[in-house]
Structure formats: C-alpha cells, structure tokens
C-alpha cells in the first residue's frame, strides 16, 4: 500500500518531465501538459516544439519580452531560446506525422485500456467541435503520453474500457500519468507502474478495465 498522497499538478508535471529523455524533441499540449516545461532539468537538451512553427521554444514571455509575433499553440506569448528555428505550418505538421517528434504530452477526456484517446470533443449536441493539432500529434509522435486527473469531477474514471467520447486517435497512447497512478499501455492491457494515495485493489475496483500491478509498492 502506498503511503503517499495523490499528486498535485506540479508533482504530476515533474513525474512526466523525469521520463523525458535528454535531448528529446517534445511537444507539450495545451493545459496541464504545459506545466511539464517548468520541470525539465536545465541542460537536459530537451527541445520544445510548438505546432505553430517553432523548435526550441523558451518560457512564457512577460513585460517587455512579449512579442505579438511569437506565440505558442495556446496563443500565449513565449520566448525563443538560442538555437531556435521557425518553419511554416505544413513543415511543422510534416515533422509530426513523419515521426520526428520523440514525445508528445496531451490532455484527455478519456483513454481506453487499449490506448485509444478522446481529447477533442465531448460529442454534446451544442458543443462546437475544435480539433486543432490534437489528432496530428496523437498519430505522429513516437511516444504519446497522456497527463490528466484519473477521475472526472463527477467521480467517473477517465481510464475506461472503451471511450464514450469521439476519438482523437485509436491505439495511440503509450503512458498515462494521473494524480493517483501512472499506467503503461501494453499489448496485454494496462500495467500500473506507480500508485499515489490509493492501493492497487482500490484503483482496480474503481476502474472497470483489465490491468495488472507492476508497481513497486504492491
């Protein structure tokens, strides 16, 4: 049984950052995944990609550093690091689909036990669908990590046998980082790697998915 409490957002981000290899080319999705940037080791050589056409993006810009021509995909003003490069949209997404990005970190509404991802559309009749680059990233990056809370506000799990929301991409997720557990998606189902503030038995009872316990604390 784990003695730790469930993780806060910063702790989740630190956990993801720890698993990003030095020198990797990485795209961080809008929202929670953006926090990962704050936890990358200085000198790790990790290069951040933003789909609106830049590599080696720096931190958020403040004050006099704000330049309306220098935005990230979330349209937040950012900075450039030495060695940055700019390119147009077709190149930026060719880079993605062509398998040149090592890791992308995305948010999720739901992830299935087989690694299907739903993160762009609730399917609600009055929702305005907006996909952005989510499908391209999910299909293109070599490794797709999902970062999300395990349970929705109503308590329902986001890791599910089959996604009820419209899919972003099928069979694309490699790892799921949540506030109570990290899970690997494998050919034999989900393997729980770490647990935070919950026992394997409790997690297993709350998620109606086939999984196995690979955590050290079991």
């Amino acid at each position: 049984m784990s003695a730790q409490a469930s993780l806060g957002k910063a702790e989740m981000a630190a956990l993801v950052a720890r698993d990003i290899p030095a020198g990797a080319y990485v795209n961080l999705g809008i929202g929670l995944p953006t926090l990962v940037a704050d936890h990358l080791e200085p000198g790790s050589g990790v290069v951040l990609h933003t789909e609106n056409g830049m590599l080696n993006m720096g931190p958020q810009a403040h004050g006099d550093d704000v330049d309306p021509d220098l935005m990230n995909a979330g349209k937040v003003a950012v900075t450039e690091l030495p060695g940055a490069a700019y390119f147009h949209h077709a190149d930026s997404f060719a880079m993605m689909r062509g398998g040149h990005l090592d890791v992308c970190v995305l948010g999720a509404f739901q992830v299935s036990a087989a690694g299907d991802l739903a993160n762009w559309h609730t399917g609600a009749a009055d929702a305005i669908p907006a996909v952005g680059g989510a499908m391209d990233l999910a299909v293109g990056a070599k490794k797709v990590y999902v970062m999300t809370t395990m349970f929705a506000k109503d308590g329902s799990p986001k890791v599910v046998p089959e996604c009820a929301y419209p899919l972003t991409a099928a069979r694309c997720v490699d790892r799921i980082y949540t506030d109570v557990a990290t899970l690997e998606v494998t050919g034999d189902g989900l393997v729980v790697r770490d647990l935070f503030g919950i026992t394997y038995a409790d997690l297993s009872a709350r998620l109606a998915v086939k999984m196995s316990d690979g955590s050290a604390s079991s």
Partner: peptide, 23 residues
C-alpha cells in the same frame, strides 16, 4: 485537423490530386 488543413493547402499549391494521411 490542423496538419491536414496545412497539407491540403500544400497539395493545392503543389499540383497534388489527393493524398493518403493517417491523421
């Protein structure tokens, strides 16, 4: 999808009749 939008525009400008895309 954003990359498909960019590539459909690219195809128009590059004389490509259509393309197969996994996205």
């Amino acid at each position: 999808p954003q990359g498909t939008l960019a590539e459909r525009l690219r195809a128009a400008g590059a004389g490509i009749g259509a393309f197969y895309c996994p996205t």
